[in-house]
Design a binder for these strands. Structure first.
Lengths: 107, 107
DNA sequence: ACTTACGGTAAGTTATGGCTTACGGAAATG
DNA sequence: CATTTCCGTAAGCCATAACTTACCGTAAGT
């Protein structure tokens, strides 16, 4: 269920941009919002969603709040994806062979 | 940019359920829709979105259309996630140590 | 040929969610 | 202690998107 919230959180382009800004390291809200096409409160709301999804965590630093990526949500996503990876490759390979057979038949 | 569409496609719970039904192997639209809380046309619309995101592919089989998972979209997602994984772990570890230092200081 | 099964598309309705402005509180600065 | 900086929350607006029903074409059965 955890990966569901993570997927929903990362679906929005703006929120994903917020998340991607944390890839290089921890940042304050101000520096995250700087240069973004939306207002600072909007960024705060996005951070809240990301936090609830387990994708980011935050720490108070004096006047500011510093956000950073939380591996928990990221790990849940990876685990969910890996469930599909092997099965998907096998199924896809079978389809390729099936279409190759049809090619041969129609000759 | 491909991972963006994939994330958006998998964000919706119903559409994700459709996708997850293909994990065990190829299926027709009818069998996918069977037992779902939404109508069959809704399932068709979800399949269209998944297909445009590169997450599924389809093949005609007589009267029916059989859908199966396409590794392309899945792979794009994995690649994008991996970009964050190492950086996230390192950053998170640094935060843990920082909070441990503060504990020691306040003693 | 008629009928049934299958599935994609169109049109219309409704709920959700992302944005803005306005406000409030807490910590630094002077 | 007044002011400024930083950030979160509330209220309201509006666009998007996930449904529904209705309809259409195509392939299989009888």
């Amino acid at each position: 269920m955890a990966y569901g919230n993570a997927l929903a959180a990362l679906a929005d382009p703006t929120r994903r941009a917020v998340f991607e800004r944390l890839r290089t390291g921890p940042r304050s809200v101000k520096t995250i919002a700087h240069g973004m096409p939306v207002s600072r409160p909007a960024v705060s709301q996005h951070l809240k969603v990301l936090k609830e999804a387990g994708l980011v965590a935050d720490r108070p630093e004096g006047n500011r709040r510093v956000y950073y990526i939380d591996p928990e949500g990221l790990g849940a996503l990876r685990g969910w994806l890996d469930q599909f990876w092997d099965a998907a490759l096998a199924a896809f390979q079978a389809e390729v062979e099936k279409s190759a057979d049809e090619q041969k038949e129609s000759k």
